[in-house]
Design a protein around this nucleic acid. Sequence first.
DNA 1: TACGTGACTTTGG
DNA 2: CCCAAAGCCACGT
Length: 106
Amino acid sequence: MSDMAETEFKQAVYEVVRRIPPGRVMTYGQVAAYCGAARAARIVGQIAMFGPDDLPWQRVVYKDGRLAGAFPGGRSHQAALLEAEGVEILPDYQVDVDKLLWEPQH
DNA sequence: TACGTGACTTTGG
DNA sequence: CCCAAAGCCACGT
């Protein structure tokens, strides 16, 4: 209540992540870019750690396609969630980001 | 109020 | 190919 409104950036991250459809993924840098801070990829991770857990954070991956190492339950859990959405998990906990990358529809 | 740390990405040696 | 540093924003001390 004391905080009138959380930063626009953080709110934007919430909205973007919420809009990622099942079976698709976005990179940290891409999410940051859509929120007005192309170089704030790290911040997306920070927000993911402190942000609401009802958002599909498992759909946010490295630009390289690797899964986050600090995902609650571990990479295997994140991989399981993605696999349940139909995402093919490649060896070394990677996904075909080139193929699954999703861009918000403007 | 200031400083350090961190779910990242890019650039340069 | 491997390593180091900068830049971004949020949060705890």
